[in-house]
């Protein structure tokens, strides 16, 4: 009889789903359809083998992180499970460098002191102290970069971003959370075209995902659009132009909305420029990050333009 380990307790699962087993013990697990469709009862396996049925229909990024539907999971062997995003441990990391990427965005490089598994495009929490932390996306790629790269925008009156900008020094040790998030490149799907849209420091995860995809030999087109109100709000422009020169299937389009930019930039809101260039997004994998209004509008427009919702990945920050 397989056992389920949850929150330090062991429960015997007798021909039941994980959901039924845990709720029968009075444990509250969110659920709705209880038939494998709605994904309200998503849980995450820490160890053990998940039956195929329990992951059917999930986004590939959730599958590789061992997420499963508790209502459809009839375990055949012991399983250790948790609710998503609980029990994320803390790691110590050393500040390796702090560099201005433009007037308001600082590139922070951190070297974790212990092994730190992550996917390019996921995010971490950076702790100022035990009770104050902010989320930052990872712009680095595990197989390319030996440090973690963050793009920190100095937010007016922002507690953590101003602490990073004004007080953090090379050599300091900071605490970070484990990486999480399902906005990343999944290997083994080299064919589909990819569209990535970011504003401001929302470029960070996209820069990681693009380089990860290229490193893994992605065959389809990869189109990155980065938007800002001013030319001065963009960054990594030269690095991205060079990357596009080196990879014929990578296309980089910097967009500026509020001033008339030089000829090698596009003028307009980033989403408008995208829809003009790529009116048909059927079959595309779409990654969105940055201003929440842009992300929300882009999610809907990409869906209307033919992208499947399963293939749209969004981080609204």
């Amino acid at each position: 009889m397989p056992n389920i380990l949850y929150a330090g307790q062991t429960y015997t699962c007798e021909g039941q789903s994980v959901l039924d087993c845990l709720t029968a013990q009075g444990i509250s697990i969110p659920s709705s359809c209880r038939a494998g469709s709605c994904q309200t009862c998503l849980m995450c396996a820490v160890s053990g083998t998940l039956p195929e049925l329990s992951q059917r229909g999930l986004k590939p990024t959730l599958v590789v992180q061992h997420y499963f539907k508790a209502c459809s999971c009839y375990p055949e062997t012991d399983l250790e499970v948790q609710l998503p995003n609980t029990a994320l441990g803390k790691f110590d990391a050393q500040v390796v460098s702090l560099d201005a990427l433009n007037d308001e965005i600082i590139g922070v490089r951190l070297r974790p002191i212990s092994p730190f598994p992550y996917q390019a495009g996921q995010f971490i929490n950076l702790y100022q102290n035990d009770s104050t932390a902010r989320c930052y996306s990872l712009a680095s790629v595990p197989s390319i970069d030996d440090t973690l790269h963050l793009h920190v925008r100095r937010v007016p009156n922002g507690v953590v971003s101003n602490w990073i900008a004004d007080q953090l020094k090379v050599g300091d040790t900071v605490a970070i959370s484990a990486a999480s998030g399902d906005c990343f490149y999944v290997a083994g799907q080299a064919a589909p075209n990819m569209l990535l849209i970011g504003t401001g420091s929302g470029l960070a995860p996209l820069y990681g995902i693009v380089r990860d995809a290229l490193q893994q030999g992605h065959q389809g087109d990869i189109s990155l659009y980065h938007g800002s109100t001013q030319v001065s709000g963009l960054y990594l422009v030269e690095a991205l132009r060079n990357l596009a020169q080196a990879h014929p299937n990578f296309h980089y389009t910097p967009c500026v909305s509020d001033e008339t930019p030089p000829a090698d930039y596009r003028h307009g809101m980033v989403l408008d420029v995208v829809l003009k260039d790529l009116p048909d997004l059927k079959g595309y994998r779409v990654f969105l990050c940055g201003n929440p209004n842009m992300v929300k509008a882009a999610q809907q427009e990409a869906f209307f333009a033919g992208a499947s919702l399963r293939d749209i990945f969004a981080d609204p920050f």
Binding site: S32, A35, C38, Q39, Q299, L309, I312
Partner: peptide
């Protein structure tokens, strides 16, 4: 949208006579 699509899927599954 993503959560809503999952609910739509559950609803269509039911309308198609599937498990729910």
């Amino acid at each position: 949208m993503v959560r809503q699509a999952a609910k739509q899927k559950a609803f269509l599954t039911m309308a198609f006579g599937g498990p729910h």
